[in-house]
């Protein structure tokens, strides 16, 4: 986390392009510290790093609606899900999309959740998850003409992301997750680029996307940022994490899985 903060800080200082920092979901909770703090440590860290938006995945929803609604108040980034709706209605419980404008460029970001995102008992009775593909089609159709760039944050997995790109026209970029892949190059399906990078925050993706004068995506260069010790710890982030560890001193278990390549 502290290395990621350093990297992002450096990008903000040196990168002249409009810059967006996004998360494709399943990031608010998982470790003991994140669960005990009800996502608090992660929200404070993501605030400090200047994240813009996060899609709500299954593990995020495991925090429960009440906690997530509290997080919405303290987060400086947008919690997105277009297809998690009230159990007895059609209205999204969370913000379905956001339009961010930087340097005159309007970027629409739609968040999706996995079809089984509400499997955890804490939210199962309160929510339904609409079909992600149909939901994406609906929102892309509504947003496409209002923005220059359209991004989907998708914790659906790579196969579902490809299906999304094949079946919903108008998506420029899918920031994916769930399949834990390290993608050295973006996967291109039609005119859509799909990227994702590993898991556990050991890597970060850096996508540089170029659009022509007509707004068509013409090039995408993906870089895997391996957050090893070549990146210094950001001191403020170290201090912040230590503060939370003092509040919740139990050890943090770590998964041992390795990412698919």
């Amino acid at each position: 986390m502290a290395r990621r903060a350093s990297f992002i800080k450096g990008e903000r200082q040196n990168n002249q392009n409009p810059l967006f920092v996004l998360d494709a979901g399943n990031s608010l909770a998982g470790t003991s510290l994140s669960l005990q703090s009800k996502g608090g440590v992660i929200v404070e860290a993501m605030n400090a790093m200047g994240y813009d938006a996060l899609a709500l995945g299954r593990m995020d929803l495991a925090l429960g609606l009440e906690t997530l609604k509290e997080i919405e108040k303290s987060a400086n980034f947008i919690l997105l899900s277009a297809n998690v709706v009230e159990n007895d209605g059609q209205d999204p419980i969370f913000t379905p999309y956001v339009v961010l404008e930087r340097q005159g460029i309007k970027v629409g970001i739609i968040g999706l959740s996995e079809p089984d995102a509400n499997a955890v008992a804490r939210v199962k009775d309160q929510t339904r998850v609409l079909n992600p593909l149909e939901t994406a089609r609906r929102y892309v159709g509504a947003l496409r003409d209002q923005v220059d760039v359209l991004i989907i944050l998708s914790p659906l997995g790579l196969d579902q992301d490809k299906a999304l790109a094949e079946n919903v026209s108008g998506i420029d970029i899918i920031i994916g997750g769930n399949t834990r892949k390290l993608m050295r190059e973006p996967e291109q399906v039609g005119s859509t680029l799909i990227v994702q990078q590993g898991y556990r925050g050991e890597w970060m993706g850096r996508l540089e996307a170029t659009f022509d004068a007509q707004g068509n995506l013409v090039d995408g260069k993906e870089e895997i940022i391996t957050l090893d010790d070549s990146y210094a710890d950001d001191p403020a982030m170290v201090e912040m994490v230590e503060k939370w560890k003092t509040l919740y001193p139990s050890p943090t278990p770590r998964p041992t899985n390795t990412p698919a390549s």
Binding site: M1, E11, G25, P155, G205
Partner: peptide, 29 residues
């Protein structure tokens, strides 16, 4: 019917992205 804000000029943007960080805070990333 709102027009996109970009006039007829090519442009480039940078997206930094993560996924599945599972609430991890250290030591990596």
């Amino acid at each position: 019917g709102e027009e996109p804000s970009v006039e007829a000029e090519p442009f480039r943007l940078t997206i930094l992205h993560t996924n599945d960080t599972y609430g991890e805070v250290d030591p990596c990333g």
